[in-house]
């Protein structure tokens, strides 16, 4: 055996996508000095935070061999409800005209509850009726979106309290709040997946659902919890994006589910279940954010950006499959 070559290959295959990310950052930095400013890196982190948070939950969902197409819609619904409860007194078109300014915790809790509830409905359908996740969440996609339109009558909800604005635009120790929240959720999800029974069982459910059942894992409860957690993260993401725009639109985040799925997939989470990591989802989200940020800065036309994004997703999966094939 040629040991050196072997181990190098091993490292490259295991962390290949990290190298891709570093390479992208280096190339962009050379091409455009303004790319490598601290400010821009914080920007990238902030920009990736919204779908990055979704990708964290999507990692759990995909490890368990599922899919959630409804996260964009759940985000939209949670966002408009949170915004309606978070309007400031000066708002010209108040959703609740007679209501005073509520403390920020109320709209935040509302968003998390709405998100979790939608997720729980997804999870309940999947776990207890046995309909495929693809179908259940596809249904939820249009249902949640419909409710968002009904709730707002199709109009944006704006002029939110300063506290809400702080969540989207404030900074702690120079780090933008969305990035702070993203980092916290990364840590929580990482611990959840790696250091708790729940996490171990997520892998087991995706790895072999029958064996999990026989091993005493409550598979139905697991599925229910996984989708509920996904919904909760959609709620958190909704708070962040509402804060960033200091407003919410019922059509918000359409298609974000695909970005989240793409991030997760680029990060090496396998759709055949049982394989995936939180850091993979983070790197995947960053790859997409760096790409979008970088290409805009370089002035690459919108049309081409879409093509490049698609290619990156496909190439990432090919690399990943090669990695798994080689092991056999």
């Amino acid at each position: 055996m040629q040991k050196n070559k072997f181990s190098f290959q091993n490292i490259f295959e295991k962390y290949g996508i990290v190298f891709v990310l570093i390479l992208m950052i280096v190339l962009m930095s050379i091409a455009k000095p303004s790319f490598r400013t601290m400010n821009n890196f914080l920007n990238i982190l902030t920009q990736s935070s919204i779908y990055g948070i979704l990708a964290l939950g999507m990692t759990l969902v995909i490890i368990s061999k599922g899919i959630d197409l409804s996260v964009g819609s759940i985000l939209g619904l949670s966002a408009v409800i949170a915004a309606s409860l978070g309007q400031s007194m000066t708002a010209s078109n108040k959703y609740f005209p007679d209501m005073g300014e509520l403390p920020i915790i109320i709209p935040v809790i509302a968003a998390l509850l709405v998100g979790s509830l939608c997720g729980a409905i997804n999870g309940g359908l999947i776990a207890f009726t046995g309909i495929p996740a693809f179908i259940a969440t596809l249904g939820m996609t249009t249902i949640a979106r419909g409710f968002a339109y009904i709730y707002t009558d199709g109009k944006p909800i704006s002029t939110l309290t300063p506290a809400f604005k702080f969540i989207g635009q404030g900074k702690i120790l120079g780090i933008p709040m969305p990035a702070v929240i993203y980092l916290i959720m990364i840590i929580i999800t990482w611990v959840l997946l790696n250091n708790t029974r729940f996490g171990k069982r997520v892998y087991a459910v995706g790895g072999n659902i029958n064996a999990a059942e026989v091993s005493g894992v409550n598979v139905k409860k697991m599925l229910f919890l996984i989708y509920t957690y996904m919904g909760l993260l959609a709620g958190i993401s909704a708070v962040v994006s509402t804060g960033r725009m200091v407003s919410a639109q019922p059509g918000l985040a359409a298609g974000y589910e695909l970005t989240a799925i793409a991030s997760t997939t680029i990060g090496g989470t396998s759709h055949s279940g049982g394989i995936g990591t939180v850091w993979g989802a983070v790197v995947g989200a960053l790859v997409l954010a760096v790409m979008r940020n970088g290409m805009t800065i370089l002035g690459i036309h919108s049309y081409w950006q879409q093509i490049v994004e698609g290619l990156v997703i496909i190439i990432a999966v090919i690399l990943d499959m090669r990695k798994n094939a080689r092991k056999k």
Partner: peptide, 9 residues
């Protein structure tokens, strides 16, 4: 295979 191992774990 079907009800025992988690093959990728």
């Amino acid at each position: 295979r079907a009800t025992g191992i988690f093959s990728v774990l």
